[in-house]
Amino acid sequence: MKIALIGYGKMGKAIEAIAVEKGHTIAFKFDISNQEAFTIANLQQCDVAIEFTSPHSAVDNLKKCFEAGVPVVCGSTGWLAQWDAVTTDCESKNAALVYASNFSIGVNLFFELNSYLAKLMRHHPNYDVSLEEIHHTEKKDAPSGTAITLAEQVLAHITRKKAWVNHISDNIEELEIISERIDPAPGTHKIKYHSAIDDIEIIHTAHNRQGFASGAILAAEFIVGKKGIYSIKQVLGL
Rank of each mutant, 00 (worst) to 15 (best):
K63N: 01
E36R: 06
A19K: 05
E201N: 12
Y8M: 01
V86P: 05
F212C: 07
Y8D: 01
L80S: 07
G12D: 02
I50D: 11
A147N: 00
D31M: 01
G7Q: 03
A220G: 13
V165E: 04
K226N: 01
R122Y: 06
F38E: 03
Y127C: 07
K139S: 10
I202C: 08
A156F: 05
F52V: 13
S214Q: 14
D128V: 07
G106M: 13
K29G: 03
W83M: 12
V48W: 02
A49W: 03
F111H: 08
M11Y: 04
H157R: 04
A163I: 06
T53P: 15
S130C: 06
L117C: 12
Q45R: 13
N102K: 10
E36T: 06
V20M: 00
I232M: 15
L238P: 03
K233F: 04
K10I: 00
A27Q: 15
A142C: 07
A216L: 10
G106D: 11
E174Y: 09
T137I: 06
G75C: 11
K64P: 00
F103A: 11
Y99D: 13
I178Q: 03
I134M: 05
R181V: 04
K119A: 09
D170S: 11
P71T: 05
G12H: 03
T77E: 13
F28D: 01
W79R: 14
W83D: 09
Q210Y: 11
I148K: 00
A49I: 02
S231T: 12
E91H: 15
L175M: 10
T77A: 14
H136F: 13
N61W: 01
E133Q: 14
K2A: 06
S195W: 09
T39V: 02
I26F: 05
